[in-house]
């Protein structure tokens, strides 16, 4: 079984069916793109994959663990330790500086200060954002903010990164920078699931899926 396995998953919002008895598998190290027009259910799928939402029926196995058997606390821990999130609006806390934003998953786990400092400095160097460390989110550009979000997603060395329109708010130059980072991350073995409505962005993925009639189908 892969890192992600959805079996007969259904999800509706009122009368609108998003997924209906859908199956979906992702193996470790894959770079998967999910493409579709706005409102097709891409983000709903990503929310299910990140345990931010529950399916109406069906089973979701993450790294061979049945998610519906996990309580809120365990899901939070799994999310913190195994999944990195990147969202379109970066998901940064405005009132805290870049260092704090990147360190957030470690702070949540009461990691010693010395270790936090070491991890943050190492990741900011890797992503070439060392000069931003003391700045606040409102003092940096969109491309820089997304790099910070990627740094935060990577700091716990997750098995998988779920990226929801990571370049949606960026200009072309910043977009290509972020996609390069994601590609190089995948090359190091990190599984990436990228949701986008942009075909150019999707083209960097090794596998591309779309949601049609409640099913997740490869393109």
């Amino acid at each position: 079984m892969g890192i992600i396995a959805l079996k007969k998953i259904s999800k509706s919002y009122g009368a609108r069916t998003i997924l209906s008895d859908a199956y979906f598998y992702i193996d470790s190290g894959e770079f998967v793109g999910i493409i579709g027009r706005s409102g097709s259910g891409k983000t709903t799928l990503l929310n299910l994959l990140g345990f931010l939402d529950d399916p109406d029926s069906g089973e979701y196995f993450f790294d061979n663990q049945l998610i519906k058997q996990k309580n809120e606390k365990r899901r939070t821990e799994l999310r913190r330790d195994e999944i990195g999130f990147i969202v379109q609006d970066y998901g940064l806390i405005r009132e805290r500086n870049v260092f704090y934003n990147i360190a957030l998953p470690l702070l949540s786990k009461n990691t010693p200060k010395k270790e936090i400092k070491h991890c943050v400095l190492s990741i900011v160097e890797q992503l070439k954002i060392s000069d931003l460390i003391d700045k606040y989110p409102y003092e940096i550009s969109g491309g820089e903010a997304q790099r910070v979000a990627i740094a935060r997603a990577l700091i716990r060395k997750p098995k998988i990164i779920l990226a929801d329109e990571p370049t949606g708010a960026l200009d072309e130059s910043a977009e290509s920078d972020i996609l390069e980072i994601l590609k190089s991350l995948n090359n190091t073995g990190v599984t990436i699931v990228l949701v986008t409505h942009n075909q150019v962005v999707a083209d960097i993925c090794k596998k591309i899926y779309t949601i049609s009639d409640g099913k997740i189908i490869p393109i």
Partner: peptide
């Protein structure tokens, strides 16, 4: 929003 980001990044609701 801040609480959402924190929970997303591993802060428990209990905290």
């Amino acid at each position: 929003y801040t609480y959402g980001v924190m929970i997303l990044n591993g802060t428990s609701r209990a905290k």
